[in-house]
């Protein structure tokens, strides 16, 4: 009995030692010298590997940060500016201040606002439906509602509202990684500056048809009438191809334009209710 025990111990130890020696030699021979700062930088990154920076994963981004002389072009949409400041300290490099962004869905065409004109019966993919035809409603610009943006979101920050049949962004979770913007075949989603208390004013439509046609396809379409342009004191609004656009940087959230819009295509989100007096005037 004891023979077996002793033999086993000796055999196993011998094997272990042999393996350790081999491993040690191999590790020495194939050792890759890496900048230790890469690991330090990577630790500060969110490790979501979302690809929002344009590089394949956080490790690649960390490598790029360490390698680059000027890191002001390299931006991680997910990291907060404090995180990026820490990284800048590690690397001893200057970093550009970046405004936090948030994804915004520029379509408000709920089923009651635009009528259904056909039934789509193909693969449940917005890209496939979009390349086939204009979609179940008449609006060739509107949201198709099959949720490709929801699928690509790695942060569960966007979901389909079953009532409105439109995607909704949860601002707290959105990291502005750009995945949904790329995924949407109709370019409905835009990254806009994140404002205090998640307040938002934007044109919730991208229909470039002439007023009448746009109005016919959707009740809340931007008809390009230009009323908002006149209301804006900061020259934040431009009108191109029958479509108004509010520059997120120039806009001061003064709330002058939303009431002007005849089709209610400019929503105001997360604002306190307007005072009755203000409405009257």
């Amino acid at each position: 009995m004891s023979d077996i025990v002793i033999n086993s111990i000796i055999t196993v130890s011998a094997m272990g030692t042999a393996a350790a020696v081999i491993l040690f030699l191999v590790a020495r021979k194939f050792n890759v010298v890496e900048d230790p700062r890469i690991d330090l930088v990577e630790e500060e990154l969110p490790a979501a590997n979302c690809g929002g920076c344009g590089l394949p994963g956080c490790r690649a981004f960390a490598e790029a940060l360490v390698r680059a002389d000027d890191i002001s072009d390299l931006k991680c949409p997910v990291s907060s500016s404090e995180d990026m400041a820490k990284i800048a300290v590690i690397l001893g490099k200057e970093i550009a201040e970046q405004d936090p962004l948030v994804a915004v869905v520029r379509c408000a065409g709920t089923p009651d606002k635009r009528s259904k004109t056909s039934i789509y019966d193909g693969a449940p993919s917005c890209t496939i439906e979009s390349s086939l035809y204009t979609g179940e409603s008449n609006c060739p610009y509107g949201c198709l509602g099959l949720g490709e943006c929801v699928e690509v979101c790695k942060f569960d920050a966007i979901f389909m509202n079953p009532e409105t049949m439109l995607p909704e962004v949860i601002d707290d979770r959105c990291t502005a990684c750009n995945a949904c913007v790329v995924a949407c075949p109709r370019d409905i989603i835009e990254l806009r500056k994140k404002n205090k208390k998640d307040r938002k004013i934007f044109v919730a439509c991208i229909n470039e048809e002439k007023g009448g046609v746009a109005r016919k396809s959707c009740k809340v379409a931007c008809i390009g009438c230009g009323k908002c342009l006149k209301a804006c004191k900061f020259e934040a609004i431009t009108l191109e191809n029958n479509l108004a656009y509010i520059d997120p940087v120039k806009c001061r959230l003064c709330r002058k334009c939303p009431p002007e819009c005849p089709t209610n295509a400019i929503p105001e989100i997360n604002f306190p209710e307007r005072k009755a007096a203000a409405e009257a005037s």
Partner: peptide, 8 residues
């Protein structure tokens, strides 16, 4: 009735 549209 609405007609159906699907890819071939």
């Amino acid at each position: 009735k609405l007609i159906t549209v699907s890819p071939s």
